[in-house]
Design a protein around this nucleic acid. Structure first.
Length: 573
RNA sequence: CGGUGAUUGGCGCAGUUUGGUAGCGCACUUGGUUUGGGUCCAAGGGGUCGCAGGUUCAAAUCCUGCAUCACCGACCA
C-alpha cells in the first residue's frame, strides 16, 4: 500500500472527549471515528487491525474443532420471551418494532438464536458434541459507553456455543476452548492471564475470564506470587488467619464516643489500629414466604471491605444484596449506623474469618454515641457463624496454599462458561439419546471481545510517540520511509525496488510516498505503530545500504539493499 | 438513571463576566522554499457560534426550553 493511495487520517491533536490512551491513540492514528455515543466507524487502519485479530481467532477456533456460522443481528422478540430474558433484561436490550408491528431486539448475545437453530437441526446424540461460533457485531445499550471501543455499545465479538449430552463432554470442549484461548492470546502477542471468574446471573458452575494486563484495566485480579493461581478479585477466597485466636484479656467496657461513627474515626478517637475494630453491616435477610422483612448482621474487621458477591451467596442474605435503612436499624437496635454492633442481638450474625480471629475488639454499643471495648467471641457473643465475607487484599495468603496474593488490573477480553441447561431447558432443545429417550442438551458458551482486544493491545503496547503493535496484528508489518524521493531519482528507484520485492514476498508494507518532510513521515509511522521501518536516503545509498529501525526497541541497523527482504522476513518469523 | 460540566470552521481552543455583528494555532488550497525528526515565506478557501423561542436598536454573549456529548457514581450475560 502507498500512502498516496490510502486514507491515513492521522491527527496531531487529541479530540477532547478521549480519556484513555487507547481511545486517544486510535483517534489520532486514524483507526476510528465516533459516529454517536458508543458507536464508531473503523477507518482503513482500524479495519486492518480488526481483521487480523479476527483471523487469528477464527484460525484457532477452527483448529479447536469449532464450526463457523453467522446469525442475524436482528432477532425476534419471541425467542427472548421464550428464554425469559425479554422480561429479565432491562434497557440494555435494545427493542424495536418493525412495519408489521412485531417486536424485535438488536442482539446483545446469541444464546437464544443458536439454541433455536440447534433444536431444529440437531435430533440425535450422534450429532453431538457440537461447537458453533460466529464473529459478529453485537449491540448492548450500555448506560454509559466509555473508553472508546473498549466499552462501546456496538462491538465485534466472537461467540461460540457448544452442545452436549454429558458433563464430561462439556468439560472436554471447555478445556479445548481454554487451550484455544491461550493459543489466541499467545499469537496476538499480549500479556494475559486466565482467571477464575464468577458465573454471575447466568448460572453454571465453571467459568474463566481471560484478562489482558494493563494498569488502566477496569477489573482487579488477584494472583499468587508463587503459583499460577489467578482469580477475579470478587472470586478470590479470603482464608482464615493462621494460628489460633488470642485469649480474652479485657473486660467488656462501654465508653462514650460522641459524634464518632466511621471505623477511621473510632480508631483515631480510641487511639487503636483499625484492625482492633469489628464493623457490623446490617443487610436484609432472605425473605421467607409470608414473614416480615428481617435483617442479618455481617461482621468484618475494621480495615476490610465487604465482598457483596460472597455475601449474596449466603443462604441467610437477600439477593440482590440490600443494606438496611436507618429506620430499620433504629427499630431493631435503637441506634443508627456508626454505633451499631453484634452485642445482644437476636438476628443471625455472620462473621468474616478474619473478624472471627479478633480478641479484645471494639464494636458499636447499639446506643447512639457509644462503643464497647474488650469484646470477645464466645465469651460475649455466643450465637454466630463464620464465613468468608470480605474482599481479599494484597498480601493475603493465596487460597491455593502457595504464596501471597498480589493485585493487578486487567481488561476482560475473553470469557468461557459452562452454561448448563439454562437455555436448552427454556427452549426445549433436546435430542434422542442412545436409549432412544428425549434428553435436554447441556451447553457451554465462549466469548472473545474482538474490538476490545484492539484497544487492550494498545493499552498494553504504546509509548509517548504512539502505538507499538505486536507483529501479528499490526496494520502493516513494515513501512518504507524514503528521504526526498520526489527529487532524488536514486532514492525513488531504491524505494520502488524494495516495495516490489517486499510486496512480492508477501509482506504487508506501507510506502510513505507523500511529498512530506521526513519528520512528518517518521511521526506518522510511529503514531500508527508499524513495528518495522526502513529509511531510504541518499546518505546510505552510496554504500547501497538503507537503515532499519525497530519501533519497539528503537534499535537501528544498516542493511544492504540485497539483504532487506530476507532480514525483514526473519524479523517477522 | 443520579451528580457535574461542555457545545464557536476538519481538530484543539479564545471571545461570554461587562451585548456592538467572530478570532488564534494546527489542518486544507495555490505559488515559492526546504529535505534524516512535525521547515520557512506569501496569497487564499472554509463558521446561520448545538437547536427553538424570548429580551433588546443590536445576542456567540442575557433569559427560558430542548437536544447532543463527556466526566464522576450506580450498572455491566
Amino acid at each position: 500500500m502507498r500512502t498516496s493511495q490510502y486514507l491515513l487520517s492521522t491527527m496531531k491533536e487529541t479530540p477532547a472527549d478521549a480519556e484513555v490512551i487507547s481511545h486517544k491513540l486510535m483517534l489520532r492514528a486514524g483507526m476510528i471515528r465516533r459516529l454517536s455515543s458508543g458507536l464508531y466507524t473503523y477507518l482503513p487502519t482500524g479495519v486492518r487491525v480488526l481483521r487480523k485479530v479476527e483471523q487469528i481467532v477464527r484460525e484457532e477456533m477452527n483448529k479447536a474443532g469449532a464450526i463457523e456460522v453467522l446469525m442475524p443481528m436482528v432477532q425476534p422478540a419471541e425467542l427472548w420471551q421464550e428464554s425469559g430474558r425479554w422480561e429479565q433484561m432491562d434497557a440494555e436490550l435494545l427493542r424495536f418494532v418493525d412495519r408489521h408491528k412485531r417486536d424485535f431486539v438488536l442482539g446483545p448475545t446469541h444464546e437464544e438464536v443458536i439454541t433455536d437453530l440447534v433444536r431444529r437441526e440437531i435430533t440425535s446424540y450422534k450429532q453431538l458434541p457440537l461447537n458453533l461460533y460466529q464473529i459478529q457485531t453485537k449491540f448492548r445499550d450500555e448506560r454509559r459507553p466509555r473508553f472508546g471501543v473498549m466499552r462501546a455499545r456496538e462491538f465485534l465479538m466472537k461467540d461460540a456455543y457448544s452442545f452436549h449430552l454429558s458433563q464430561a463432554s462439556l468439560q472436554q470442549t471447555y478445556d479445548a476452548m481454554y487451550r484455544a484461548y491461550c493459543n489466541i492470546f499467545n499469537r496476538l502477542g499480549l500479556d494475559y492471564r486466565p482467571v477464575l471468574a464468577d458465573t454471575g446471573a447466568i448460572g453454571g458452575s465453571v467459568s474463566h475470564e481471560f484478562h489482558v494486563l494493563a494498569s488502566s484495566g477496569e477489573d482487579a485480579i488477584a494472583f499468587s506470587d508463587t503459583s499460577d493461581y489467578a482469580a477475579n478479585i470478587e472470586m478470590a477466597e479470603a482464608l482464615a488467619p493462621a494460628g489460633s485466636r488470642p485469649a480474652a484479656t479485657l473486660p467488656v467496657t462501654e465508653i462514650a464516643t460522641p459524634n464518632v461513627g466511621s471505623v477511621a474515626d473510632v480508631a483515631a478517637f480510641l487511639n487503636i489500629p483499625e484492625t482492633q475494630i469489628a464493623k457490623t453491616l446490617f443487610v436484609l435477610a432472605a425473605q421467607e414466604d409470608g414473614k416480615p422483612t428481617s435483617l442479618v448482621a455481617l461482621v468484618l474487621r475494621g480495615d476490610h471491605e465487604l465482598n457483596e458477591i460472597k455475601a449474596e451467596k449466603l443462604p441467610e442474605v437477600a439477593s440482590p444484596l440490600q443494606f438496611a435503612s436507618d429506620e430499620q436499624l433504629r427499630m431493631l437496635l435503637g441506634a443508627g449506623a456508626g454505633s451499631v454492633g453484634p452485642l445482644g442481638i437476636t438476628i443471625p450474625v455472620i462473621v468474616d474469618r478474619s473478624a472471627a480471629h479478633l480478641a479484645d475488639f471494639v464494636v458499636g454499643a447499639n446506643k447512639d454515641g457509644y462503643h464497647v471495648t474488650g469484646v470477645n467471641w464466645d465469651r460475649d457473643i455466643s450465637s454466630y457463624r463464620v464465613a468468608d465475607l470480605r474482599n481479599i487484599v494484597e498480601g493475603d495468603p493465596s487460597p491455593c496454599g502457595f504464596g501471597k496474593l498480589v493485585i493487578k488490573r486487567g481488561i476482560e477480553v475473553g470469557h468461557i462458561f459452562q452454561l448448563g441447561e439454562k437455555y436448552s431447558q427454556a427452549l426445549k432443545a433436546g435430542v434422542l439419546n442412545e436409549e432412544g429417550k428425549h434428553q435436554i442438551m447441556t451447553m457451554g458458551c465462549y466469548g472473545v471481545g474482538v474490538s476490545r482486544i484492539v484497544a487492550a493491545a494498545i493499552e498494553q503496547n504504546h509509548d509517548e510517540y504512539g502505538i507499538i503493535w505486536p507483529d501479528a496484528i499490526a496494520p502493516f508489518q513494515v513501512t518504507l520511509i524514503p528521504m526526498n524521493m520526489q527529487k532524488s531519482v536514486r532514492v525513488a528507484e531504491a524505494t520502488e525496488l524494495l516495495y516490489q520485492q517486499l510486496t512480492a514476498a508477501g509482506v504487508d508494507v506501507l510506502l510513505d510516498d507523500r511529498k512530506e518532510r521526513p519528520g512528518v513521515m517518521f511521526a506518522d509511522m510511529e503514531l500508527i505503530g508499524i513495528p518495522h521501518s526502513i529509511v531510504i536516503g541518499e546518505r546510505n545509498l552510496d554504500n547501497r545500504e538503507v537503515e532499519y529501525k525497530n519501533r519497539r526497541t528503537g534499535e537501528k541497523q544498516l542493511l544492504t539493499l540485497d539483504s532487506v527482504v530476507a532480514t525483514v522476513k526473519g524479523f517477522l518469523a
